[in-house]
Design a binder for these strands. Structure first.
Lengths: 191, 191
DNA sequence: TTGCGCAGCTAACAGCGTTAGCCTTACGCT
DNA sequence: AGCGTAAGGCTAACGCTGTTAGCTGCGCAA
């Protein structure tokens, strides 16, 4: 229907999949800079150099996680849009974005900050993961602005940049209101 | 008047100021992960361990740069608001934010991503640097949303996350329109 | 003149990603 | 049955990182 098909995923040997899973666990449990090749190997019961039999280098391990992150984020956003009438798409999209990002903070950061390893990613995955913003706004520039807003909100929330005691639910609502009131060809106001 | 006084700065010995200046140059010219203690020392004609006579550790050097970054960003934003009538504050603020961040990308990233070294920062500096968003919107939650939007835009632009050929001027305009049309107690629409 | 402290130095350590080279195991083919 | 090969582990080591300990020389103050 309105949600295009998810792009093909990069094939992964069974052992590579195990390593990626262990890396993901390490990333979420101990944070980005404790995801080291030696710690990853230890979690798998092997030594660090053995990892290089399965991944070219650390960046390739991270690229595998980025691929997972984009695929899962894309699936969550497309699913959120599927359940909602056109008028309520922006708030639904923002809620799903926030929920998914905060549920996987390490993965979110890895996939969305710093340079994207585009060469190691399946073609079309990035666009597919971002397309819900275009589906929710019907206008490319407003879609990019909405995406930027959601990204900024999540990062500032993860980094504890908002003043203590901020009611972020209300902040997300204020942003949702701003983006539904404006520009979108099909969205009536949601006070 | 409406712009409060800038908070006091942390005192810095002459040598510490030289080191911070060299660190800033290194950060902007060669990027965040080429800002190493050895490279910094070499630029100053000394050896890395000597730096520890002036800064407790690398994090303290970075904290000095974060302080500079917040003070300068705050000054730029307050200045931008001072030149503009109430109605045009949001677009003026966003334009100044973008211009300043893109002019000092390394410093911007250092100061706004990852955990803030709040303990090493002068009290009130962070709030002062962020207060222009409150002055521009007159509503705390919309202010935080606007800030998040600007932050997300800058980061995605710096990280080249937008599709090739995106006209980001138009995206910034779309966001400015969304945030001026909505909520703000004093802002009429700016088509 | 004596003493002190500032600001440099070398040597070294642990941890990082990564490479080279070795060895064992398992499997397919003749 | 035996051989060849490839997969997937291993150790040792390199150059890089931040950081510490301890030494040295210079300048200033009492």
């Amino acid at each position: 229907m309105s949600t295009h098909q998810q792009p093909v995923r990069t094939p992964r040997t069974p052992r590579a999949a195990q390593i990626a899973a262990a890396a993901r666990g390490l990333l979420e449990e101990r944070g980005r800079d404790e995801l080291t090749m030696r710690a990853l190997a230890e979690r798998l019961g092997i030594r660090a150099p053995s990892l290089y039999k399965h991944f070219r280098n650390k960046e390739a391990v991270e690229a595998a996680l980025v691929e997972d992150a984009l695929a899962e984020m894309g699936a969550a956003l497309h699913a959120a849009l599927g359940e909602v009438p056109a008028a309520g798409r922006v708030p639904a999209l923002l809620a799903a974005y926030r929920r998914h990002a905060l549920a996987h903070p390490g993965l979110y950061r890895l996939a969305t900050t710093g340079p994207l390893p585009r060469a190691a990613l399946p073609g079309g995955l990035e666009e597919w993961a971002g397309s819900p913003f275009f589906l929710a706004t019907d206008e490319p520039h407003l879609a990019q602005a909405l995406w930027s807003y959601a990204h900024g909100m999540v990062l500032l929330e993860l980094d504890h940049r908002y003043p203590d005691g901020s009611d972020l639910d209300l902040t997300w609502q204020a942003g949702a209101r701003a983006f539904t009131a404006s520009g979108g060809r099909s969205a009536p106001d949601v006070p």
